[in-house]
Design a protein around this nucleic acid. Structure first.
Lengths: 210, 210
DNA sequence: AAAAAATAGTTGCAAATGCAACAAGAATAC
DNA sequence: GTATTCTTGTTGCATTTGCAACTATTTTTT
């Protein structure tokens, strides 16, 4: 992280109470929220993880986005008025911080310190979200599966300060993240190994180029 | 827009002066900024437009992102440490608002009203940026060119409250935005017309489905 | 401990796409 | 007003990809 801001520390400080902020627990597969325009709801994952799911007119469901610890989400970030139903489902037992975006405009009655900290810390949470989105766009924009994989591996390698790194996703999830067919991605991974671009054992990958 | 916040009004109010904020003019093809980690620079397009360009190791250049009026940008939104050179170039004569992200933490000496307004309005600017990014991800994640086009057209149609709408981009730019080959996209557009999904004359398109 | 679910790995084949290389018209620059 | 650049439009062909349909292995549930 560029600015010396700790999301973890920030979220831990949030546990004090403010009348405008709720902390809610969800069981696996419980619906956390639905994305309906004009509710201005903002959520932060304190513990667990969740998927933003779409159900389209044909009844097909797909994962639009995945939220892990300290990720921020809510329909306020997703002003895309398609007629599809969108909702967020807990992937596991999860703890979610929920508040309304009007928290920015209105002070709470108590004018509490927690409220103030939230306002100060939130921009950083959002910034790192923007960074993540830009990264994904960068990858999705690559024309071939090979380019997507290599670009992604380069970034993981640079984050780890090492040619060797651990995949943070299962291969199934990685294919979803890059929006490619899983079997086609497996094929490309095999070719990358055969061509000597990478070495792979389990979820450990070593980049053999640049 | 969901929350009744006017980006235009906000940006017009910014023209008053704050010691921490600069308003700069650029000629066409001038470099507005380079993306170097740890500078925490934030920019807002007041007039004109700009492209975020990447030059990779092979010397190839590509447009990563395009910024139009009231778009916000800066390396703070782009924490992707590849070794490529990234910079923002004015597409035309442009006026750009430039300030440092530490504006959030430090008050300016004068404690000026403008500074305060900036802090209040900025989150909204960033939110609409996040929405735009999510929209683009949504489109890029579609597997076929046909799906990308139809999804995009549906959104334009809903924005316009009409089956008929005007393309806000040239077809060349649209192909870039969707990250597909232009000629392949033209082919698909023709097929969509032939299959009766759309009608098109000039930059006016009519959606014939749902 | 057995059953069920999730993940990883593989392959053939048809369909979709990128690429290259054009031509024509529109817009812009000089 | 001519030249130049940009945008639209088109086509053949090779490559890439998605899809379907499997098997094997690992993990989770009961």
């Amino acid at each position: 992280m560029k600015n010396n801001f700790s999301i973890e520390k920030f979220c831990n400080n949030l546990l004090s109470s403010c009348e405008k902020v709720q902390e809610k627990d969800f069981e696996k597969n419980e619906i956390i929220t639905t994305y309906i325009v004009n509710r201005n709801q903002v959520c932060i994952v304190l513990e667990g993880s969740a998927d933003l799911m779409r159900y389209d007119f044909n009844g097909n469901q797909m994962i639009v986005e995945r939220f892990n610890q300290f990720d921020i989400f809510g329909e306020i970030f997703y002003q895309i008025n398609t007629n599809n139903e969108l909702f967020v489902i807990a992937k596991e037992k999860s703890k979610i911080l929920v508040f309304n975006y009007d928290i920015f405009e209105k002070k709470c009655k108590k004018n509490c310190k927690f409220h103030e900290e939230l306002l100060l810390g939130l921009p950083n949470l959002v910034l790192s979200k923007v960074s993540d989105l830009n990264l994904r766009i960068e990858l999705l924009a690559k024309k071939t599966i090979r380019d997507k994989l290599i670009s992604y591996f380069k970034i993981l390698s640079e984050k780890a300060f090492s040619k060797t790194f651990t995949l943070p996703l299962s291969l199934t999830d990685l294919a979803d993240y890059l929006s490619v067919d899983r079997s086609a991605m497996m094929r490309e991974l095999k070719l990358l190994k055969e061509d000597g671009f990478i070495k792979k054992s389990g979820d450990k990958i070593t980049l053999m180029i640049m």
